[in-house]
Amino acid sequence: MINLNFKNYLLRHLQVMLFTLGRIWRQPLASLMTFMVIGIALALPASLYVLLKNIEQVSTQWDDVAQISLFLKQDINDQKAQKLATELKAWPEITNVSYQSASKSLEEFRKLSGLDSLLDTLPTNPLPAVVIVQPDGKNLQADVIGDLVSRLEALPDVELAQLDMEWLQRLRSINETGQRGISILGLLLSLSVLLVIGNTIRLAILNQQSEIRVIKLVGGTNTFIRRPFLYTGFWYGTLGGFVAWITLLITMGLINGPINELASQYNSQFTLTWLSGSMMLFLPFTGMLLGVMGAWLAVGRHLSAIEPT
């Protein structure tokens, strides 16, 4: 018996679902406009998010080339420096270590700068020996790397430890700022979707005032009256979410060409990640939640005002 009731219940929901879809279908132009508004409002933060994800991906690729230069104290001889390099290689955070002696640095500098005569006048080699450390950038967070840098600097032989990729951290900070901005934008635009759907449902309620009165007269509960409006919100939100997804794909398609060109100029293997799969789930789902919520707010606000007279 309970089983049968439950089946009835599901069946009724299915009926209302299809009935409301039919109603939307019978007003194609008005519905399409609503879908577009919802779609564009959702697509905007989504596209920015996808772009940001791509930038993030690029910056993690560059983590591999992050390196720390350890400038050793002047009184450290080659032997001692070599020993330090071997020791450091054993650290778990460090993937690779290379040593460059002071004289080699001077040679290099001489070659690059062309200041031969000037350098000859110096009494001693002013350049320090350098140990170049490659941290395990893939597995380490930025703050762990920062920690590593300060630990290296604290070593008695080391004069100065310098992370060469500080600009990468800056990029990350910019990225984080961007993400915060997109969250706020997404929140505001979600709110606008909520209001758009709420308003659409409000108009639908006003259009069906006499029907609502009749249903109340023959014993319809508020739950019963609310149901078709909630499903209308469900459809607007979900289908609007699909429109957002399509808009996103078109946007990415348009951006893809110039980005590939840009990447090839930097000799990069970079290709745009579309996130089309996860977005195909995420956008309609978000739309659905906003749709049902917007409908709920509108119905709650207006339903009690309509009573039979």
């Binding site: 049968l4 009835n8 219940y9 009749v214 249903i215 014993g219 019963f224």
Partner: peptide, 11 residues
């Protein structure tokens, strides 16, 4: 059918 639908009668 409306009153019956409201009352949740089966099809």
């Amino acid at each position: 059918a409306l009153p019956l639908v409201i009352a949740g009668e089966n099809h």
